[in-house]
């Protein structure tokens, strides 16, 4: 793979939305969801909002695969820790000195719902939005161009440097460097591996800077974009609407908490 992005190309309506619209939508789902404290809230959002969106984007299967792969260790540990280390509560059963508590299990269930919808929401966004188009729209919305460049190019360069690290690893091994074995051997091997990578990338920074300056990176003219990023009045309205709804939800939540 050439980029750290998990973007999957599809001809879906979700893919065709302006990246900013998806960004705002994701942010609203994330923050809006946190306004609800019901134990089922996370699951409702996952199944009633995120999943239909994923179906609309044609990436449901891929989304669930990634969500599962990333979150199962987390969810497992949440269940183990919350149920066994819950202080006072209703014991479900006893194994010697420890016993899982009902309250702990319920809390873990609620937390897991949150973990799942937050992950799914983020993954869905990444699956349907190209990082470069997102950066272009964020730039148009006011993000500094230098920052946008750093984010996108880092996403592309990390895999390149990983490949380079492997080349160095092979080269040093072929010179007889021991890289496998116990901790001490491995630690000793680290320097000859990391040093060439760090030094070469430091030297490269200057060349990279020259190369982008040679293409008028710091030009003060108004930038244009080779990629057409679709946008429409209705999407702009939708973005404003979503932001207002989210603010109302969060405000409502605060007021409700204050009054009770």
């Amino acid at each position: 793979m050439n980029s750290l992005s998990i973007y999957v190309a599809r001809e879906s309506g979700l893919h065709k939305l302006n990246p900013l619209t998806k960004f705002v939508l994701s942010l609203c789902i994330l923050l809006g969801g946190l306004a609800f404290s019901n134990a089922l809230a996370g699951y409702v959002i996952l199944f009633a909002i995120v999943t239909p969106l994923a179906m609309f984007g044609g990436v449901t299967k891929r989304m669930y695969q990634l969500v599962f792969n990333i979150s199962w260790p987390l969810i497992l540990s949440v269940f183990l820790i919350q149920s066994f280390f819950w202080g006072a509560g209703t014991p479900l059963f006893e194994i010697g000195p420890v016993s899982p508590k009902l309250e702990g299990v319920l809390f873990a269930f609620k937390s897991s719902g949150r973990i799942l919808y937050v992950m799914a929401n983020f993954i869905l966004f990444s699956l349907t939005t190209r990082p470069d188009t997102l950066m272009i729209s964020l730039k148009q919305a006011g993000l500094p161009g230098g920052l946008a460049y750093i984010i996108v190019s880092t996403l592309q360069l990390i895999p390149q440097y990983a490949a380079k690290a492997n080349i160095i690893l092979d080269a040093q091994r072929s010179r007889g460097l021991e890289t496998q074995g116990n901790i001490v051997t491995r630690a000793r091997a680290l320097l000859p591996l990391v040093l060439p990578l760090v030094i070469s990338s430091l030297l490269e920074v200057e060349e990279r800077a020259i190369a982008i300056e040679a293409r008028a990176f710091n030009s003060n003219r108004v930038e244009t974009s080779i990629l057409e990023i679709p946008d429409s009045q209705s999407q702009k309205t939708a973005r404003a609407g979503m932001i207002i709804i989210t603010i109302l939800l969060i405000a409502g939540r605060f007021l409700w908490q204050l009054s009770s």
Binding site: S3, D132, V152, S153, A211, I212, A216, R221
Partner: peptide, 23 residues
């Protein structure tokens, strides 16, 4: 390798990078 901007996903877009910068 160091002359590739890193900000672009295709050769076509890569070549356009400088033109984008000058509007």
């Amino acid at each position: 390798f160091n002359q590739i901007s890193g900000a672009k996903y295709t050769v076509f877009e890569e070549i356009a990078f400088g033109l984008e910068n000058i509007g």
